[in-house]
Simulated scan of single mutants.
Amino acid sequence: MSSLLYIPWQPDETIFNLGPLPIRWYGMCWMVGLVIGYFLMQWLYKRHKYPSEKFEPLFLYVFFGVLAGARLGHCLFYEPQDFLTSWDGIVSIFIPFRHLADGTWRYIGYQGLASHGGVVGLLISLFLYIRKSRMNTWVVLDFFGICSGIAAAFIRLGNLMNSEIIGKVTDVPWAFIFYKVDTHPRHPGQLYEAIAYLVIFVLILALYRRRPQKVGTGLYFGLCLTLIFTFRFFIEFTKIVQVDFESGLPLDMGQILSIPLVALGAWAILRSKGKTGKK
């Protein structure tokens, strides 16, 4: 089939330069997703009559927890040979610079953030926040279940702008040609996920509007994990492996890491049955 029928994809990764620092679409998508999530969360706290002093420290816990978890998750699970075998690699885990062969350091941003690691980082940061604020654990988790889908959608749009996490070669008419990679038409796996996560967000939000009394039971937290990571498990079949060692595995790393999160979500849904949320 002629390549003219496919969608050519070769966007500039940089939106603009702020002095010597490039502002990239990837980082901007992360930030937009987090900011929208922030305002949604603020709305939920107000709607359920929690004082503003309970909400105010939450963003910092979440921001640093998600960023640290996503970064460590990528470095530990996907590129341990690059980040764990030298001091330069270990340092590069924590700073947005890469040590080049000529001895200089170059700003590259935090390239390489794993969504599964971000979830683990989020859960750890929420545990610390809940212990400090004395909020009800399941209320906070349900609030995040309501908000998280929109942030996940923007993160995958960032991956699309970076032409990363690409799909397998295909002849479907909506295939993208990621010219940064090659000239083969491929599944736009990032776009599939972004659309799915947006739909999941809308569905969970609509259910919450009908049944706000279920906040605090774990229902919305469970639905978020189960729906997002079940979709993630199956969409992985359309993607190429991200790192070579995955080729020898029966499932890729994204699928392996999705299974316990789906199980956790299913358990949360089951425990929510017949319950009404309490503060």
Rank of each mutant, 00 (worst) to 15 (best):
G117V: 01
V62W: 01
F221W: 10
Y78G: 08
G216T: 06
G189D: 07
L5C: 13
F143H: 05
L76Y: 04
F245A: 02
T217C: 09
G89C: 00
H99V: 07
M41C: 15
K239G: 02
F77M: 15
L67V: 12
Y220E: 01
W138H: 06
F233I: 00
K180G: 05
R131A: 02
H99K: 12
S3Q: 12
A263P: 01
P260K: 00
Y6H: 00
C224E: 06
K275N: 12
D82K: 05
R106I: 14
A266G: 15
H116K: 07
F83Q: 01
V172H: 00
L58W: 06
P57G: 11
Y208E: 02
G103F: 11
P96I: 03
P260F: 04
G69F: 07
T276H: 12
I130Y: 03
R24N: 03
W87N: 02
R271Q: 09
I130C: 08
H187I: 06
S115V: 05
L84W: 07
L122Y: 01
Y6R: 03
Y50L: 13
G265L: 02
L191R: 04
W9A: 09
D244V: 13
G167P: 07
I23N: 00
R271D: 00
Q111E: 15
R106K: 14
E164Y: 10
K49Q: 14
W105H: 05
P51F: 05
Q242N: 10
G19A: 12
W43P: 04
H187M: 01
D12M: 10
Y6P: 00
L40V: 11
F127D: 07
S125H: 01
S86H: 11
V91A: 11
G109F: 00
A151V: 11
V243E: 10
S3N: 15
L264R: 07
W267Q: 04
D142N: 07
L40M: 15
Q42F: 14
L141F: 12
V35K: 00
F245E: 03
G103E: 11
V181T: 09
W30Q: 03
T226I: 00
A152S: 12
P57T: 13
S247G: 14
P51S: 14
F39P: 06
K46W: 08
R24K: 10
R232K: 11
F39R: 02
C75R: 04
G19H: 13
S148I: 10
L21H: 13
Y192D: 01
K46G: 03
I256M: 08
V169D: 06
K49L: 14
G65R: 06
V241H: 08
V241L: 03
V262H: 10
E236G: 02
R186E: 04
G89K: 02
L18W: 13
T183G: 13
A101N: 11
G145A: 08
Q242L: 14
P51N: 12
L84Y: 08
S258N: 09
G222Q: 01
H99L: 04
A196V: 13
G69L: 09
R210P: 03
S148A: 15
W87E: 12
Y110L: 08
G145K: 04
P51T: 15
F237Y: 15
L100P: 09
L34R: 09
G33L: 00
W25T: 01
I130V: 14
S125E: 02
I228Y: 02
I165K: 07
L270M: 14
K239R: 10
P260D: 09
R271A: 01
F143A: 04
Y179C: 08
V120Y: 04
I7T: 13
I150M: 10
L40R: 11
H184L: 14
